[in-house]
């Protein structure tokens, strides 16, 4: 397994005291917290920081980690000394099984089993029987999946005890039915797909949080969908009947004469489909006006004719407000 240098991850020296470790962790956690970070690998870095902090902020784990010695040279696989963990006791894991599931093989091999023996669920005492912990995962689906429903393969990584009682990280793939009508931020709950229970108690559940793949064509607000509808100037000015591709298929749209950019046309019930007692959302087509380029003599002449023949000042409103301000 690959050695993890927890001091390097937190950017502290091996002699750092508890306060220095706490400050270093919080500083980096601000930078990499996945809810606010702009870094692409924020989620992975935050898991790494949590792992390092779990070990270095716990005096028992830190002492055990320090006893391992240094990182092996030349990219060799790391193996802890045979009697490294003999006689060590841990008073509590300080993290849940679900949280530790994302930690490295290095952590699982060194602390997983011991933490479990000591009741590693946030310091709670392990009862004779205890329901397995719930797990969480995020699932990114296309907007079309919310309209039509889909089946998605979801790969999950979780720490489990093998037949000999050792902790191993296991990957599994679940094929999950995504029902139509889901909104971003909703959860699908899969009963019994979390951690295994203890002492014959039932397994925990798996919560899948839904989000949508970003798509430049759409914005989504609950079950309402806002789609940009580019129009040629003459379609907006004179009105038109146009074919418009939407998430639920191409529709014929009547554009009223005099349509301005920014105005929205609502197609009732053509947003994300309803679910149970909830009604379907609406689709809003937001008008934008795209100018044809003046890159030929003919095109330039049309613009010149318009400039000459149409008494049109698009800044008339600005001029009025400026006069008002002066007065």
């Amino acid at each position: 397994m690959e050695f993890r240098d927890y001091y390097q991850i937190l950017g502290v020296s091996k002699t750092a005291d508890a306060d220095e470790i706490k400050k270093a962790f919080r500083k980096l956690a601000r930078k990499y917290h996945p809810d606010v970070s702009k870094e692409a690998d924020a989620g992975a870095r935050m898991t790494e920081l949590n792992e390092a902090n779990t070990v270095l902020s716990d005096p028992e784990k830190r002492a055990a980690y320090d006893a391992l010695g240094a990182r092996p040279q030349g990219g060799q696989d790391f193996r802890p000394p045979p009697d490294w963990n003999a006689g060590r006791e841990y008073s509590g894991g300080g993290m849940s099984d679900a949280e530790a599931a994302g930690f490295s093989d290095f952590f699982s091999n060194l602390f997983g089993e011991s933490a479990r023996r000591a009741g590693g669920t946030g310091g709670a005492h392990r009862a004779e029987q205890m329901r397995g912990e719930d797990h969480h995962a995020k699932v990114v689906i296309d907007l079309a999946d919310a309209y039509n429903g889909a089946t998605r393969a979801i790969t999950l990584r979780a720490a489990k005890l093998d037949a000999s009682g050792h902790v191993v990280n296991e990957e599994r793939t679940l094929n999950v039915n995504i029902p139509k009508g889901l909104k971003a931020g909703q959860h699908i709950r899969l009963n019994g797909q979390g951690s295994a229970g203890f002492g014959g108690a039932p397994s925990g559940d798996l919560f899948l949080e839904i989000s949508f793949t970003p798509d430049a064509r759409y914005r989504v607000d609950g079950r309402d969908v806002i789609e940009a509808m580019p129009l040629a100037p003459w379609e907006a000015a004179l009105g038109a009947s146009i074919e418009m591709p939407t998430p639920s298929g191409t529709v014929q749209v009547t554009v009223p004469p005099g349509s301005q950019a920014g105005r929205k046309l609502r197609l009732r019930g053509r947003g994300i489909p309803g679910q149970g007692s909830n009604e379907a959302g609406d689709l809003y087509l937001e008008i934008s006006i795209v100018l044809p380029p003046a890159n030929t003599d003919a095109a330039r002449k049309i613009y010149e004719d318009m400039a000459r023949d149409m008494a049109f000042n698009p800044r008339a409103a600005n001029a009025t407000s400026t006069q008002g301000a002066k007065a």
């Binding site: 089946t151 191993v168 599994r172 094929n175 959860h187």
Partner: peptide
């Protein structure tokens, strides 16, 4: 180790069935 499970799982949509206080506490490990 990767285990491909060909079973298609259908879950319960939270909101159709809201969570009780016990279920929310379990989901957050608190």
């Amino acid at each position: 180790m990767s285990t491909m499970n060909m079973t298609i799982f259908s879950g319960v949509i939270v909101d159709d069935a809201t969570l009780t206080i016990q279920e929310l506490a379990c989901a957050c490990s608190v």
